[in-house]
Design a protein around this nucleic acid. Sequence first.
DNA 1: AGGTACAGCGTACGAGATACAGAGTACCGG
DNA 2: CCGGTACTCTGTATCTCGTACGCTGTACCT
Lengths: 254, 254
Amino acid sequence: MTKRALPPVVARMWGRDTGSRHGPRPSLDLARIIDAAIGIADREGLAGVRMSSVAAQVGMATMSLYRYVGSKDELLTVMADAATPEPPTLDGRPWRVYLAAWTQANRDFLVDRPWLLSLAHHTPPTGPRTLRWLDRALTALAPTELDLGQRINIASTLTGYATTQATLSHSMITAAAATATATTSAAGDGSITGLADYGDILDQVLDPEDYPELTAAVRSHAFGTAEKWIDDADFTFGLDLLLDGIETLITRRG
Amino acid sequence: MTKRALPPVVARMWGRDTGSRHGPRPSLDLARIIDAAIGIADREGLAGVRMSSVAAQVGMATMSLYRYVGSKDELLTVMADAATPEPPTLDGRPWRVYLAAWTQANRDFLVDRPWLLSLAHHTPPTGPRTLRWLDRALTALAPTELDLGQRINIASTLTGYATTQATLSHSMITAAAATATATTSAAGDGSITGLADYGDILDQVLDPEDYPELTAAVRSHAFGTAEKWIDDADFTFGLDLLLDGIETLITRRG
DNA sequence: AGGTACAGCGTACGAGATACAGAGTACCGG
DNA sequence: CCGGTACTCTGTATCTCGTACGCTGTACCT
C-alpha cells in the first residue's frame, strides 16, 4: 500500500538482500568489497578508488563487482556509511558533556578520513551508522523537554559544525601542501621553500582598501600556521559558542 | 625573497595576468568562459560542465580553452568564486542584525546554486568574492572588541552553518526525487507514486530497539515533508542558537 | 621585412565506467 | 536421478572525457 520499494542503495545498506538461492554461491560478500574500498581510500584517497582497483584488491575481475553493487556511486554511498564509526556511548552523561564529546568525535573521524568529506553532499543520512549518531544525540537531549524538531535541528547544527571544522583544517593543510609544490617550480633556483602559509598567499593578493579587516587579520598573523587549524583550542571555542546557545534556549524554555 | 610565486589558479582569479603582448590577440576573455560554464552548471548541474560543452557554448574548439585555464579543476575553482555574489552591505547595522542577514544570504546563494556545494571542499577561500564575505563579517564584528582570531572563528562557524543547512535541504530534495524515480520501476503497476518522504524511508528501515528516539521522531512526523527543509523557520532557529552563543561570549567579555 | 611568440584547433591517446554475452555451476522440480 | 534454469564470474567492447602534441596562421617586435 503505502509501503514502497526502498531505493536499492538503501536496501543494501541495511542488509535487506532478496536472497533467492539458486545457482552458484557468491564467493564474496559486500562487506569484504567495502572494506577493500575503504582501505584504498584511506591509503590513496578517493581518487584511488576505481572499480578495477577495488576488484584487484579482493581478487576478482572488475565486472564481478557489479554483482554486488549497482554502480560506483552506490559503492561510494555504502562505503561512506560503513567508514563511519559508532558514536560515543551516552553513559548517563548530561547533554552538554555528551554532545561536546559527540561533536568532537564526529570531527575526529572526518579528519581521519578526509575523503568522507567529499561524499557528504551526495546523500542524506540513510545508513545505519550515520543514523545511530543522530539517534544518540536525540537521546542525550531527551531530558531537556525540547521537542523533537528542535532536537533534530540541534543535532544537524552540531554535525554541520564538525564537518565545517574538519573541512577547514583539511583544506588548509591541502592548500599549504599544494602551494609548496607549485612554488617549487617557480624560479631558477630549485630549492624547496617548505610549507607556505595561507596567510602568505592572502597577503600577496589583498588590496587593503577593499579588504580592510581581512588585511589587518593577515598582518596580525591571526591565521597562524597550518598547525593552528588542527588545534583543539579553536574547535572547542566555537563549540562552546554553540552549546551556550543551546543552553540559553533550554533555560529560556524551562 | 619571502615573496613566492602564487599558485596559478590564485593568480588568475585576481586577474594577475602576465600580459606579454605578442602574437594574435586572444579572441575571448576568461570571464566569458566562466560565465558560460556557470550557465551550464545552473542549467544541467556540475556534470554538464565538460570542457567540450563549455567550449561549444562560447563557440570555440575544446582545446582552445586551455589557453585560458590550466585544467578543468582550475576552471571549476575560478567558477566557484565567480558564482558567489557580493555579500550584503553593512549599512551601519549592529553585528547581530548584519550577521543574521549575512548568513541567510550565504545560505540562499548556495541553495540557488547547489553545485557550489560540491566545490566547497576542494579549495580554501582564496577568491576575491569569497574573501569579501569574510572581510565583511570581520568588519561587522569590529566594534565588539573580540580579537581577530575569535572573529575569524565566528565567521567560519556561520559559513559552516549556512553550508550545512543548504546541503541538508538540497540533499533532502534530491533524495525525495531519487526515491520517486527508483520507486517507479518497482512493481507490476506502472503508476507513479509521487514524492516519497524521507521519513517514509526511515520508517521502513529502522529497528525501534536500536534507534528508539529516531523512531519516535519519524513516527511523530518531526521530519515533515520535503518542503520543510527549505523553510526559513528551521534555519533561523539554528541561527539564533549560534547568535545567542556569540552574544554570550561578547557580554561575558565586556 | 622577417622573425618569433602566441592564438586557435584537429587528432590522438589514455583512463575509467559500464553494457553485453558466453561459460560454468548449483539448486530446483519432477 | 536428470534436465532446466537462475545466477556467478569474467573477457571484450564501447563510450565518455580530459588533455598532450603539433600544425597553421597571425600580429607585434626590431
